[in-house]
Design a protein around this nucleic acid. Structure first.
Lengths: 103, 103
DNA sequence: TGGTCGCGTCGGAAATCGTTGACATGTCGG
DNA sequence: CCGACATGTCAACGATTTCCGACGCGACCA
């Protein structure tokens, strides 16, 4: 079940931030590791999880490696989430109909 | 970070199936446990994780307990996922039936 | 009041996951 | 060639998760 890999990859907040960073453009492994105050192997392991879920792919350029986002597997999350949308869409519509009051 | 709780709850395939079952309507704890060939305490633990993420709420009715879906926290997943949608929407543009808005 | 039934929770065992440190591979510059 | 750099990977420890059997609590019924 490749679906499990995607949800498992998204379970970690660091991996979600990695995807958000890669959404802005490709980055090297060292640059990614420098963003978080975390050891380099730790980030490498996180990248391995993302690679196993096919959410990133790496391009060796010279002696450093550029990581790119591959967002297609995220569509599986969207597909899984879609049947649930109507549950909170109803809530948001009723809230929008009232006004923008604080709660 | 309540957001972490939601993604963590969705990381387990059994919990995702629990949410799908509850999307069809409320069910008792025993009925839910009977769906999976799994011990009842194991399912109870999964329900506790879902309760911690505020994805379900329980209604004691007599000596059994009915579980209801509370899908609002799933909107957090939708919000997180939204910025990535354009990445795979471009791939599926041939099948797209909705208008496309760019930035 | 006594006896089930439905559930939750507590202990412990097994599996999984994340982190660190040390080591191996491959690349660039002199 | 030979160091210095960027990176991946492995071994091991600790933390977390997952599962099960056993127990306790409240609700129903005779």
């Amino acid at each position: 079940m490749p679906e499990d890999d995607v949800f498992l990859a998204l379970a970690n907040p660091i991996r979600r931030r990695l995807l958000q960073l890669l959404a802005e453009g490709p980055r090297t492994a060292g640059d990614l590791a420098h963003q978080f105050d975390l050891s380099r192997p730790a980030v490498a392991e996180h990248l391995q999880v993302l690679r196993r879920a096919a959410l990133v792919h790496d391009e060796p350029r010279g002696r450093q490696r550029h990581y790119h986002l591959t967002a297609e597997p995220l569509a599986q999350v969207g597909d899984w989430l879609h049947p649930f949308e109507r549950f909170w869409r109803e809530r948001l519509r009723s809230l929008a109909d009232v006004t923008e009051e604080d709660q």
